[in-house]
Design a binder for these strands. Structure first.
Length: 684
DNA sequence: CTTCTAGCG
């Protein structure tokens, strides 16, 4: 077990936008275990499964414009194909798009190692937001959003011979936007090549999407599919005979059963959320203690893994268990794609996943628990077969498995599209309703997005981006509502305060929640010191200012139950936003404690999220008449309910809860967003 | 009287 060698990131990846995910972990395409470490780089490259297909791939790329490449993770496609193309003397750059920053950076490092001794410098580079190296490398690894930005200044991607969209099966919002745009560009630039790399079997649909002449047999196909075998070992699949009443208990039982059977290898459990993970870890730890006492059975170490777990704790899952112990990792979906945990031989799969789903009637995102798709089930199972042949225990019946959808619905069909639509518009697509989406979203979702963009004055009545505001908002890496607030802050003379508030909204809460009785009360008392009746956002402003006045001291954070790391990150984000805002000529000034100007400025962008106190005692949105409640975390929860509020987000659990509230005056809505709120709305 | 799957710009 000791020959696992995680590759750590170079220190250049210190962008604090990423702090909470930074670790970490290695992306699934990275090579964690390299049994050929002592061999020369060239020998290693030739050992990759993809090497046998080298000439065939190059041939297909000569003949076809689009290559849909199906290959399991670890076959080497994302590191090797760009090198093959350079070796075959394709003249311009090869761009590789990754869904995650860590992946882009670690792939670039890997390929730089491989090519370093052979080719001159400047061969390989990467670009992720706020961090780039090598201006125009021959092979460029980047995040998907970066290529979109490049398209804004270079719509035909004239610097590139080929673009590779990696991990396309994940179907992020950006993957889909990129694929739609690439289809257009390919028609205009016949010499450009596209490689769509996917781990699953939706290849046929992708090929059809990119095939220019699918029905006319006189013209030849422009897209082709090819499969590359991975270095995956076989995985035995087990189903439960009868549906289990509780998959948490079932997963605990299954872990213990595997452990008693004394088959070697670590165990990975897939559950849906943080709370489930922690409960299961507690249950397993109780058993682990019993096991230690009995001294007979094999001992286990139990580790949680989920996105908001502190950095330090996330890293623990990459270490192998001490001698005489078996590692049991209880994880959310993070372990399905984002993170590869070494040593796993057994996978336990609950069969469910939490997905964000946009509800067009309430205009809110909900987090819903749904059965996974077949490709997701396969992906989870595959986590067991990376070391040697493995086993997956599915906590659902074979009938249930047969009924699963083939693929998880792409984000495009289940997201709030405001930002995506703005991006597509900024890339020169006039009629968004006719845009060729790989999976068209519901028309209503598109219309809602257009409505909001129009109300924000980011597009005009013709649907054209406005100048300069629409273009500026498109360039800003924020929710358009927040960008609008920022760009309005100059006219209200409160950009200093607004910068702080928006930066605070970019991190998870900076209030830490102690778990033991006494501290819970103490934390609540300390929080009161910052609270104001104007709401949460002004409260955040007080917290931040207090932190700055304390010279960013850790003692201040400790005393007030605040997250030092979180606030440091806010400082960094704020610094970046301020720099960007200055570039757009917005004056940076303070309104010195006039919260009215700040709150008016917030209304200028957040007006679609307004709610009033209905005589029934709960709040209702003005658009849509949806019933909402104040979230118990809000400072407004414990004081008499104000008549009018605006909110930043809604979470859907037992009810629809508004979070991050600000108290407003109803007159401001008419004054600042008259086009959105006609007077009649108020008198119904 | 309670949340926060994952991730990007």
């Amino acid at each position: 077990m000791s020959d696992f060698k995680p590759r750590f990131l170079k220190p250049s990846d210190t962008s604090s936008f990423l702090d909470k995910n930074e670790p970490q972990s290695l992306e699934s395409t990275d090579f964690i275990y390299n049994k050929h470490l002592s061999q020369s780089i060239q020998t290693q490259r030739q050992r990759l499964p993809i090497f046998n297909n080298r000439n065939h791939i190059l041939y297909l790329l000569e003949k076809f414009q689009t290559l849909v490449l199906v290959g399991e993770t670890g076959c080497g496609k994302s590191t090797q194909i760009p090198q093959y193309m350079i070796e075959a003397e394709w003249p311009l750059s090869i761009g590789v798009c990754e869904p995650r920053r860590v992946a882009a950076i670690s792939l670039a490092n890997r390929v730089a190692d491989e090519t370093g001794s052979l080719v001159q410098q400047e061969t390989v580079g990467y670009a992720v937001m706020f961090d780039a190296c090598n201006n125009k490398p021959k092979i460029k690894y980047m995040t998907e959003g970066i290529l979109l930005r490049e398209m804004m200044s270079d719509p035909l991607l004239k610097d590139y011979s080929a673009i590779m969209i990696d991990e396309a099966h994940e179907r992020t919002l950006y993957t889909d936007i990129l694929m739609g745009l690439m289809k257009k560009i390919l028609k205009r630039r016949k010499e450009l090549r596209l490689i769509v790399a996917s781990a699953t079997l939706d290849a046929k649909a992708l090929q059809e999407f990119f095939n220019n002449n699918p029905t006319d047999d006189k013209k030849k196909d422009t897209a082709v599919i090819m499969s590359v075998e991975g270095r995956q070992f076989p995985v035995d699949v087990f189903y439960v005979a009868e549906p289990v009443p509780c998959y948490l208990q079932a997963s605990v039982d299954t872990v213990l059963k595997i452990n008693e059977s004394k088959q070697p290898g670590d165990i990975l459990v897939f559950l849906t959320g943080q709370e489930e993970v922690e409960r299961t870890v507690r249950l397993l730890n109780e058993h682990a203690n019993l096991i230690e006492e009995s001294r007979k059975k094999e001992k286990i170490v139990v580790l949680p893994m989920y996105g908001s777990l502190p950095h330090h704790d996330q890293l623990k899952v990459f270490r192998s268990a001490p001698d005489g112990y078996r590692k049991v990792v209880v994880a959310t979906n993070i372990a399905e794609t984002s993170v590869t945990i070494p040593g796993i031989v057994h996978v336990i799969d609950c069969g469910f996943v939490k997905l964000k789903w946009y509800n067009n009637e309430t205009h809110t995102d909900s987090l819903v628990t749904l059965p996974i798709s077949k490709s997701s089930a396969d992906q989870r199972a595959g986590r067991a077969g990376r070391l040697r042949s493995g086993k997956v225990y599915r906590l659902y019946t074979e009938e249930f498995a047969a009924k699963l959808a083939d693929n998880t619905p792409p984000e495009m069909v289940r997201s709030n599209l405001t930002y995506a639509v703005l991006q597509i518009k900024a890339l020169g697509i006039a009629n968004i309703l006719k845009f060729d989406f790989p999976s068209p979203p519901p028309i209503q979702n598109l219309k809602s997005a257009l409505e909001i963009l129009y109300a924000l004055d980011a597009i005009d009545i013709e649907g054209e981006l406005t100048r300069p505001l629409g273009f500026n908002i498109a360039e800003f890496a924020l929710d358009p509502l927040y960008s609008k607030v920022l760009f309005s802050s100059g006219e209200f003379g409160c950009s200093e305060e607004i910068l702080t508030i928006i930066a605070m909204l970019q991190v998870e809460t900076v209030f830490t929640k102690p778990s033991t009785g006494n501290s819970i009360i103490k934390a609540r008392i300390q929080k009161r010191l910052f609270e104001v009746e104007e709401g949460d956002l002004i409260t955040y402003l007080n917290v931040f200012n207090g932190f700055i006045q304390s010279d960013m001291s850790q003692g201040f954070c400790h005393k007030n139950f605040l997250s030092y790391k979180g606030l440091k990150r806010v400082v960094e984000i704020r610094r970046r936003l301020e720099k960007m805002l200055r570039n757009y000529g917005v004056p940076i000034e303070s309104c010195i404690r006039s919260t009215e100007m700040i709150r008016k400025c917030l209304v200028k962008g957040l007006f679609p999220n307004a709610a009033y106190l209905h005589h029934s005692g709960s709040y209702k949105t003005i658009r849509g008449d949806i019933e909402l409640s104040v979230h118990p975390d809000s400072v407004l929860y414990t004081i008499p309910q104000p008549q009018w509020v605006i909110f930043c987000q809604v979470v859907h659990t037992t009810k629809l809860f508004m979070r991050d509230l600000t108290v407003i005056d109803s007159d401001w809505l008419l004054e600042l967003a008259p086009h959105f709120y006609f007077k009649t709305t108020f008198h119904e």
